Amino acid sequence: MKKKKIGFELLVFENASELSQNDHKLLQEAMNARENAYAPYSKFKVGAAVLLENGQIVIGNNQENASYPSGLCAERVAVFYAGANYPGTTIKSIAISASSSEHEVAAPAAPCGNCRQSLIEYEQKQKSPISIILGSENGPIYKCASLEDILPLAFNSSFLSDS
């Protein structure tokens, strides 16, 4: 038996003023998108902003439904919109911002498992990393260089065929 440790680097910023101008703008777009989220049940609003290689920014926010599985997370709304409207265009980064109308969200909320799986597929398909910027209402901001960082040992298409 062998024991293997898997880890990654995470940049932690005290506030948005420490971010690069591009990262700050992308996070602000995610915060703006968050405000239009439809979250009447959880009261937990999430916004996402995706930066494409052509400079286009695509936004999304969570869309809940009384039939809970019918809703969709902000990250997938934004990435699926990008894939549908800008097919083949590389995704450079995604910023995600969360808030709640019932309590302060003082730490960044990372993507759920479904979103991680959806995002890693885009990263694997384009063969280049997608950086992730995570923010909340207040508190620190996290940045990772790649989706692979937050989803090690990811499931991918290689498990589905011999090719």
Rank of each mutant, 00 (worst) to 15 (best):
Y41H: 14
Y41R: 12
Y41E: 12
S42T: 14
K43W: 13
K43I: 04
K43R: 14
F44R: 15
F44E: 15
K45V: 02
K45S: 15
K45E: 13
V46M: 02
V46P: 00
G47S: 09
A48C: 06
A48I: 02
A48M: 02
A49D: 02
A49V: 03
V50M: 05
L51I: 01
L51W: 00
L52T: 12
L52R: 05
E53F: 06
N54F: 00
G55N: 14
G55S: 11
Q56R: 13
I57K: 05
I57G: 10
V58M: 03
V58P: 01
V58H: 00
V58R: 04
I59E: 13
I59M: 11
G60E: 07
G60N: 06
G60F: 05
N61L: 00
N61G: 02
N61K: 06
N61W: 11
N62R: 07
N62Y: 01
N62K: 06
Q63R: 15
Q63N: 13
Q63D: 15
E64M: 08
E64L: 08
N65P: 11
N65S: 15
A66C: 05
Y68I: 15
Y68H: 12
Y68W: 06
P69R: 11
P69C: 07
P69G: 07
S70V: 07
S70E: 11
S70P: 03
L72V: 12
C73S: 14
C73N: 13
A74V: 00
A74I: 00
A74L: 03
E75R: 02
A78K: 02
V79P: 04
V79T: 09
V79C: 15
V79W: 06
F80L: 13
F80A: 10
F80E: 15
Y81A: 11
A82W: 08
A82C: 09
G83V: 03
N85Y: 11
Y86E: 06
P87L: 04
P87E: 09
G88V: 14
G88Q: 05
T89C: 05
T89Y: 04
T89I: 15
T89G: 00
T90C: 08
T90Y: 09
I91W: 08
S93M: 10
I94E: 00
I94W: 01
A95I: 10
A95Y: 02
A95M: 00
I96L: 11
S97P: 05
S99N: 10
S100F: 00
S100H: 00
S100W: 02
